[in-house]
Design a protein around this nucleic acid. Structure first.
Length: 289
DNA sequence: CGAGTTTGACCAGCGC
DNA sequence: GCGCTGGTCAAACTCG
């Protein structure tokens, strides 16, 4: 679309990058995982270069200028993950996507439950592509379709401009859930998988598949040879994360954030909660001892 | 046989 | 207005 380096993340009205602080749980108890996968939120080198907790993250974000991180740190585990959130409420920024009252069936994918007698054109007419909150992950992985605890059904594949790799479109198999995700490989680094989630699941995970990627008894078992993502990729975590972020943003926490002239929010830093998201999201057994 | 994948066609949005 | 591109549909196909 616009940025050939980032064709997927740029076409929305309000991308907001999740900074390292946003993704607090990334490095709180998951530094091992992060180092295993060399997660690297590109926006802040101070974050990526230390496994510890950075005191402050500063990043300025625009919606399209995030390069795909190809440079890796000096560490042997060299890969990168960029996490991006987008909140796209076209024509209606006041509509909170995190609202649980929102009927997911009324969004753009409502046509999935199309009535056979309805002509295509009318369907298209009636529906407007209203995008929901989106998260984008850049993950170094050999597998395209990363296991995240949900079941997905592929509904399309397209060759994208400026990329030699096709983009795949997936939809949550839960009929009531309208969450979609797109998976594509970075044209610059084919080992990087860009996964974009759109919407919020209205259900829990279906559990990790047989032998899953996430042996709860050993969260450190995400060794590089697995080439599989950490459970952090589970969008449920991100939903919780974002929910918390939004709550914090609108509460007394008063995150130091700036708004760019085009209305995009750049979060500079986030207070680190006592337990943080891990405490709310990740079961104790999944955390570092 | 049901669930999931493939793939060509169609449509909307956007830039020129 | 036109062409390009991304996103989705849906029939055909595959697989377990």
């Amino acid at each position: 679309m616009n940025d050939p380096k980032d064709p997927d993340l740029s076409d929305d009205s309000a991308w907001r990058e999740l900074t390292a602080s946003d993704s607090d749980f990334f490095y709180r108890d998951t530094s091992t995982i992060l180092s295993e996968f060399a997660w690297n939120l590109h926006a802040s080198s101070s974050f990526t270069q230390t496994a510890g907790v950075p005191s402050s993250i500063t990043t300025t974000t625009s919606k399209t200028d995030q390069p795909i991180p190809t440079s890796s740190g000096s560490s042997s585990a060299a890969a990168s993950v960029t996490v991006t959130e987008v909140s796209t409420n076209i024509n209606n920024p006041s509509t909170a996507t995190s609202s649980s009252s929102e009927d997911p069936t009324e969004n753009s994918t409502a046509s999935a439950a199309k009535t056979p007698e309805t002509p295509k054109k009318e369907k298209k007419k009636a529906q407007k592509r209203i995008r929901q909150q989106r998260f984008a992950f850049m993950t170094k992985s050999d597998v395209d379709n990363l296991e995240d605890g949900y079941r997905w059904r592929k509904y399309g594949q397209k060759a994208v401009k400026n990329s030699s790799f096709p983009r795949s479109y997936y939809r949550c198999t839960n009929s009531r859930c309208t969450v979609k995700k797109r998976v594509e490989r970075s044209s610059e680094d084919p080992s990087i998988v860009i996964t974009t989630y759109e919407g919020q699941h209205c259900h829990q995970t279906v559990g990790f598949p047989r032998g899953g990627i996430f042996p709860a008894h050993d969260p450190h078992n995400f060794t590089s040879h697995h080439h599989l993502p950490p459970p952090l990729l589970n969008p449920y975590y991100y939903q919780e994360l974002l929910h918390q972020l939004h709550s914090e943003n609108t509460s007394s926490l008063q995150l130091p954030q700036s708004t760019t002239e085009d209305g995009h929010v750049a979060v500079s830093s986030i207070n680190q909660p006592e337990e943080g998201l891990l405490g709310d999201i990740v079961p104790q057994t999944m955390r570092n001892p």
